[in-house]
């Protein structure tokens, strides 16, 4: 019963049709309320739709199913202007940070005016990446350097 709905959700995710994807997560959770993947997907849909308050509330209400969503939690906090919380969430990760976590941490550090550490992250991110955002990342690095000095 859930498989076709998950297939639909996957399709809407691929086409970035977040309104429809959100509706599909609600259908899944209406049938079975403790579907971890549907709960996590719902949060991401809400975030894509700029509903950060609701996304954050959904995380709080489903603490067990969302305990490993460090990036998403920190990004919600960042967008809700809870910058210290975002910093603490990222710093609570007990392993090496993924690239996206480092990218977010660099932005958080900039907002916290911790330019020294921010510049260090950008230096490493610029060096170790070759994706399509590299020139934008370089611009962030330069902006952080210029603001620091």
């Amino acid at each position: 019963q859930l498989r076709p709905l998950y297939a639909e959700l996957q399709k809407y995710g691929q086409t970035q049709d977040w309104d429809r994807a959100l509706k599909t997560t609600r259908k899944i959770l209406g049938i079975s309320s403790n579907e971890k993947k549907a709960t996590q997907s719902k949060i991401i849909c809400l975030m894509q739709l700029d509903k950060f308050d609701e996304a954050y509330g959904t995380m709080t209400k489903n603490a067990n199913d969302t305990a490993d969503l460090f990036f998403e939690r920190a990004y919600c906090e960042y967008r809700l202007n809870r910058i210290e919380d975002a910093y603490n969430t990222l710093k609570s990760i007990e392993r090496d940070l993924s690239e996206r976590e480092q990218e977010l941490l660099a932005q958080v550090l900039f907002k916290l005016e911790k330019y020294n550490e921010c510049v260090d992250y950008y230096r490493s991110l610029v060096k170790n990446n070759a994706d399509e955002y590299q020139s934008t990342r370089q611009a962030n690095f330069i902006a952080a350097l210029a603001t620091w000095k």
């Binding site: 859930l2 498989r3 998950y6 297939a7 959700l9 996957q10 995710g13 994807a21 993947k37 996590q40 997907s41 991401i44 849909c45 975030m47 894509q48 990036f71 998403e72 990004y75 960042y78 690239e99 996206r100 990218e103 977010l104 660099a106 932005q107 900039f110 955002y133 934008t136 990342r137 611009a139 962030n140 902006a143 952080a144 210029a146 603001t147």
Partner: peptide
């Protein structure tokens, strides 16, 4: 103070659903 480009947002994707479909 300048505002940085938000590159983190580009990394926001659904979890893998391969085990559910």
């Amino acid at each position: 103070k300048p505002v940085l480009f938000d590159l983190a947002l580009n990394h926001l994707t659904l979890p893998s659903l391969d085990d559910k479909v």
